[in-house]
Each structure stands twice: as C-alpha cells, then as structure tokens.
C-alpha cells in the first residue's frame, strides 16, 4: 500500500480500481453520519453482543450483500437476475408455512426453502441457456410470477413463525456479531473459493466477455451459465431465510420488494460492469454495505421516505462517475489546466 501511495503509477492503479470509489463514498457517509448524530459510530457491549448503528448496518447490509454475491456471478456472464426479490418471498413463504402450519421440522423446512430457491435459479438459467431468452426477459417471468406464487403459498396472509431455530438467523449473534454476518462470511468464502481457486471464475469471465469465443475455446458455456443462475437463486433463498427470521414471519407481499434493484446497484457500485466479464465479489459486498449505510444516514438526518430516493440517486451517480475513466480523465485535464493557469510565469503571462 505504501508503495502504491508513493509510486504514481501504483496510485493510479488504486484510483482505477472501481471498488476504491465505493470505499471512499462509504467512508464519507460514515463521517457524515457521525457528524449528524454523535453516537452514530459508537459500538458497545449489550447482553453479550455488540450493539450499535455500525452493527445494524452490517446486519442489514449482509442480506443485500448475500444477494449481491449471487447477482455478481450472473452479471459476470453478461446476464442479470430480476427475480431475486420474488425468490426471497418464495423461500420465506415456504419456510414459514412449513414450520408453523404444517409442523415440519425446521431443518427440513429450511432445506425445502433453499431447494425451491435453487430450482428457481435453475429455471432462470434454463430459460437463458436452452431457450436463449434474454436474461432480463427470462428472469422477469419469475419476478412477476414468483411473488404470486409466494402469495399462493401463504394464502395472502402474513404467516408468523414461533420456532426459535427459524428466527436464529435474524436475531441471534455469533462471535459477538449478528448471525447474518456469519452467513455472509460463509457465502463469501464459498463464492471466493469457487471462483478464485477453481477455473470456474475464469470460465464466468470468459463467457461474459465473449460467449462465442468461450465456446470455441472449449469452455462448457451452458453448464457455466446454469451454475451462475442456480447460485444466484440459492443466495436469494438464503436471504429469504434471513428475511423470515428477522421479522419472525413471512410477508409474501413485501419480502424482498425491490431487492433486485438494490442488489444490482451494489454490484455496479462495487465495480462489476453490467457488460459482463471481470467481476469483484469484495466490491459487491462493499457496494451492499454502502447502500445500507446510505439508508441509515438518511434516517439519521430525518430525511422523509418520499424524498429519500433523490439523495440516494445523487450518491450512486457520483460513485459511478468517479468510476468512469472518461470522467476522471476529463477532471484531471481540467485540474491540470487550472493548475497551469495559477502557476506564475508560465502561460498565464505571455
């Protein structure tokens, strides 16, 4: 890092890394929050666990981050999955109805919910790989129908769950932190191992860069696509379990509502381009935390919910602009010429 800071080329590389700007925005927001509300960054021990706003951000951010990790894999293939919010609703509906209405043991209910989420992912993947539907259209099907299916499962009601094992993920703490953070750690580790310690990550990038070239060079394109969508579905399923645990109920109408947009934004803020190819899992996690911090900061400043999307959009736009090489080049040109004008004895005085 010190090398990077002293060596101008290393510095340039850091500035080019898109996740850098998400981190900068995250830090700026945390400072803004601390200024707006004195106790914003304070963390204390309470009932044998850490307690404070940063912990809340980690807790809620983890859910978005888990979905964003799955989304990253799909976006790396130049795809997109719009159905994640609906899959969250389905998974949450299944676990809640199985446990509290059918009396099924929680491990089986959870496995059932994750199985359904996996199926949903495979369904999306099949539409994309075998029917060659455009990802945005293919996943739109389940985005619309999925919430209806979840409503059918719960019969349009909010199903309350009393089983403490189901509520564990959204309420208990592991290693002083909310259990959701552990879930995120496990899923990040699996995703990292799967993509960076096997050839699969390379395959994903190859398919996203140029599917035809990938196929011609012998990469099994179809299995790669299927696995990416299935993994995304599974991640959404885990988020569904978390959602259900958090409110101790399945709210099919609202669970995961607009989550697909948050997840896509997290991926983009983290520096993975929607055009596919190179991706950054860590970037997506940072992006998700950035989104959550932003929500919190807006609460802290008492920004009313009907105008909150405006400042959100402004910050997303700022980060995206800073990530753009064209924009940065234009900025540095302006800076250069301004500096030149200020320097005495050069062009300023002919």
């Amino acid at each position: 890092m010190t090398d990077a800071a002293s060596d101008p080329r290393g510095m340039a590389r850091v500035l080019r890394a898109p996740a850098t700007w998400a981190l900068v925005a995250l830090a700026a927001l945390l400072v803004a929050g601390a200024v707006g509300s004195p106790g914003f960054l304070s963390v204390e021990m309470r009932d044998g666990r850490l307690y404070g706003t940063p912990i809340d951000i980690l807790n809620h951010g983890s859910k978005v981050a888990i979905v964003a990790i799955g989304m990253t894999l799909v976006i790396a293939t130049r795809g997109v999955d719009l159905s994640v919010g609906a899959v969250v609703a389905i998974a949450s509906a299944i676990v809640a109805t199985l446990v509290s209405q059918k009396g099924v043991a929680w491990p089986i209910a959870m496995a059932g919910a994750l199985g359904a989420a996996l199926l949903a992912g495979l369904w999306n993947g099949s539409l994309v790989t075998f029917l060659r539907l455009q990802p945005i259209v293919a996943t739109l099907v389940l985005m619309v129908a999925g919430r209806g299916i979840a409503q059918l499962i719960t019969d349009g009601q909010i199903v309350t769950v009393r089983d403490p094992a189901v509520a564990f993920l959204g309420n208990a703490s592991l290693l002083l932190l909310p259990a959701t953070v552990s879930a995120l750690a496990v899923i990040s580790a699996l995703a990292w191992l799967g993509t960076r310690r096997t050839a699969f990550g390379l395959f994903l990038e190859a398919v996203g860069e140029n599917e035809r070239a990938a196929r011609l060079s012998g990469i099994p394109v179809r299995p790669v696509l299927l696995v990416a969508y299935a993994a995304c579905g599974l991640c959404a399923g885990v988020a569904g379990l978390i959602d259900c645990a958090y409110i101790r109920a399945a709210d099919a109408n609202n669970a995961g509502q607009l989550l697909e947009l948050d997840a896509i934004l997290a991926v983009v803020l983290g520096g993975t381009a929607l055009t596919g190819g190179r991706f950054s899992l860590l970037g997506s996690v940072i992006g998700a935390m950035l989104m959550q911090t932003l929500t919190k900061v807006l609460y802290v400043f008492d920004v009313s919910a009907d105008i909150a999307p405006a400042p959100k959009a402004a910050i997303v736009l700022a980060v995206c602009l800073l990530q753009s090489p064209t924009f940065r080049a234009a900025c540095s040109r302006h800076l250069e010429s301004a500096r030149a004008r200020l320097r005495p004895g050069t062009e300023a005085r002919p």
């Binding site: 509300s37 004195p38 706003t53 809340d56 958090y246 409110i247 669970a255 509502q257 919190k296």
Partner: peptide, 16 residues
Amino acid sequence: TRAKGREVMETFLKSP
C-alpha cells in the same frame, strides 16, 4: 411493513 418498522425503530432507539 414489519421489516421496515423494525429497521426504523432500531434507528430511533440508537439516536441520541
């Protein structure tokens, strides 16, 4: 919604 109700209340409780 339940989820937003909980999230916003968390913020209220942690404010000064």
